[in-house]
Design a protein around this nucleic acid. Structure first.
Lengths: 173, 173
DNA sequence: TGCTTCATGTAATAAGTTACATGATTGC
DNA sequence: GCAATCATGTAACTTATTACATGAAGCA
């Protein structure tokens, strides 16, 4: 019964809901804007488009670009209502920290420092994107909400790092 | 050259660094304690143990349980120092919210409510685990740090949900 | 005796990335 | 004309889950 990966269909239909575009553009859209919390590769996107075209959810406009059909718009609405599939949580930093005793405090502090740099970098990236979004645009308003999620997560991580660093440094070891 | 998945090796070696145990117990250990931020299935664990035994990183103790060899302890230390592999970020909730305009405010608010319940449930789970950990135990001190990360993330998500709900409700639609 | 948990493993399947192949368009 | 970008697709490989098969040990 090999049901297709619903999340990829959702991402592709969602991209096409903003405007008709080529598969190449779908990828660019996902990388540039959704990139902070979602990824899809060509190897996923093109088969998905072929599937969706065969099922009548996606058609072509005059210029040959992929475009949502009315059925596709219904399908998208239905998918948006499905509960998110929570992928298995896999946090490489926490995996390492959990067994940190075998590595020593020094290694843990290094990992924290590196993560801090990375998170700071990401927050700066989010700020850049925020600057390009218009709160008055009905589509971009929703994008701003997701951006805000990233900012909250980032700040929480930085706060936890500060706390954790202090704890590590206070231990006798 | 098919290099083995380093993250699974790390999880398995890490579990064995706490005490010698069977593969079955390794799984239980990972599910029960690391479960909040890491997963491994039998299909990963047994091949990993076989690989690690063949390479001399893991041996057997008198009772036949898997145990770290000195080489394995070195290998673990080395793996703990490698930078975490950040898996591609895939947040199903944000993917849906990003295209939320196609679904309408009502659907978005429902998704938020469901997420709020889920996060609250997880925070309660973390609190339960915290109660079982002893801050004086050298191993469990590290576990507490990772627990704290989950708590920060959870609280940040709840704060973002409150903010986002207010924003959605203020829109004319 | 029979039920449950412990224990080890394999096979089928799913999901996704990467690299490759190929060609059309566009700008200089 | 040539380079870069746009565009579509496929094949090989990696990673991971799920379901299945099998059997020993503990206990009621």
């Amino acid at each position: 019964m090999a049901r297709p990966p619903a999340q990829t269909d959702l991402a592709v239909l969602g991209a096409l809901s903003l405007a008709p575009m080529s598969g190449y553009r779908v990828r660019q859209e996902i990388v540039s804007t959704l990139g902070h919390f979602w990824t899809e590769s060509f190897g996923q996107i093109y088969p998905a488009l072929a599937r969706l075209e065969a099922s009548g959810d996606v058609g072509r406009d005059d210029a040959g670009r992929f475009a949502l059909t009315p059925a596709g718009r219904d399908r998208l609405r239905a998918l948006l209502q499905t509960p998110p599939e929570f992928g298995p949580p896999r946090n490489g930093l926490l995996l390492r920290l959990f067994f940190g005793r075998a590595a020593g405090r020094r290694t843990c502090l290094d990992l924290l420092a590196e993560t801090e740099r990375e998170v700071t970098r990401r927050l700066a990236g989010l700020a850049d994107v925020r600057a390009t979004l218009d709160p008055a645009d009905p589509d971009e308003r929703y994008a701003l909400l997701t951006l805000s999620a990233g900012e909250h997560q980032g700040r929480a991580t930085l706060a936890w790092i500060a706390e954790t660093r202090a704890a590590l440094e206070s231990w006798a070891d």
